[in-house]
Computed example of a mutant assay.
Amino acid sequence: MQDITPRIALELICHEGVVREAYRDSAGVWTWSVGITNASGHRVFPRYKDNPQPIERCIAIYLWLLRTKYLPPVLAAFGGAEPTEAQLGAALSFHWNTGAIARASWIRRFVAGDIAGARASMLDWAKPADLLPRRKREQALFFDGVWSGDGTALIYEVAKPRYTPVGPRRTDIRQMVAMAMEERP
C-alpha cells in the first residue's frame, strides 16, 4: 500500500495552515491544527480550546489522521491503480478538504480514462468560490505535477473572544514534518 511522503504532507499543510489551539472556522465549526474538526474522529473541542499545543503535536495528529482516516478511501478511489506521488497528494488534499473522494465524479472519470473530463469536473467542487484557488492548485498538481508547497506553512494565532485565526507567520516546517514521519508508531 502506498503511503504519504513528506512532500505530500507539506503540500496539504501549505493549503491549510496550522493553528495551535481551537478556533472557529468560517462556518463556526471548532477546528484545530491543520484544519482538523471533531468530524475527523479526533476530539478538537473542548480539548484544544484555550489550550495551545506545540506545532510538533499538531503535525503528529495531522499525519496520524491523514494515514488512518484519509489515505485508505483515497487509495480505494483509484480502483487498484497506483497513483503518482503528485496524484496522491492532490487527491488527499481534495479529500481532506471535502471528505468527498468517494462521491467525486472527477476521480471516477480519471479512473475510467476520461482525463479531460476529470480535469474539468474537479473544478465543480469549487463552491463556495473561495475554494477555486485551492481546486486549481490541486488540479495543477494532479494533472500537471505542479507542486505549490515550498516547505513552509502559515502558523496562526487565535484572537479571543471570537476565536478566529489571526496574524499568520510563515514558518519552515520541513524538519518538523520529517521528524514526525520518522517517529511514526
Rank of each mutant, 00 (worst) to 15 (best):
E56I: 13
R57I: 10
R57G: 11
R57V: 15
I59Q: 09
I59K: 13
I59S: 10
A60K: 12
A60R: 13
I61Q: 04
Y62V: 13
Y62T: 10
W64I: 11
W64V: 11
R67Q: 15
R67G: 14
R67M: 07
T68H: 15
K69F: 01
Y70F: 10
Y70N: 12
L71C: 10
L71R: 13
L71V: 11
P72S: 10
P72M: 02
P73V: 09
P73Q: 08
P73I: 09
V74H: 13
V74E: 06
V74Q: 11
L75K: 14
L75I: 15
L75P: 08
L75Y: 14
A76V: 12
A77H: 06
A77W: 00
A77C: 09
A77I: 01
F78L: 03
F78R: 10
F78P: 00
G79E: 14
G79V: 14
E82S: 15
E82Y: 02
E82K: 14
P83T: 01
T84A: 13
T84P: 07
T84H: 03
T84Y: 00
T84L: 12
T84E: 07
A86Q: 04
A86V: 09
Q87Y: 09
Q87T: 08
Q87N: 09
L88M: 05
L88T: 03
L88K: 06
L88W: 03
G89Q: 03
A90Y: 11
A90H: 12
A91S: 14
A91T: 13
A91E: 09
L92G: 02
S93T: 14
S93V: 12
S93M: 14
F94W: 02
H95A: 14
N97V: 03
N97F: 01
N97Y: 02
N97C: 01
T98Y: 01
T98Q: 04
T98K: 04
G99W: 01
A100N: 07
A102K: 11
A102Y: 04
A102H: 09
A102F: 02
A104N: 05
S105Y: 04
W106Q: 00
W106P: 01
W106I: 04
R108M: 06
F110N: 00
F110W: 03
F110M: 07
V111S: 05
V111F: 08
V111A: 08
V111K: 04
V111H: 03
A112T: 06
G113H: 10
G113L: 10
G113E: 11
D114H: 08
D114L: 09
I115P: 09
A116F: 05
A116K: 05
A116C: 06
A116N: 10
A116D: 15
A116V: 11
A116T: 01
A116W: 00
G117H: 05
G117F: 05
A118L: 00
A118C: 05
R119T: 06
R119I: 00
A120H: 01
A120E: 04
A120M: 03
S121P: 00
S121G: 04
M122S: 02
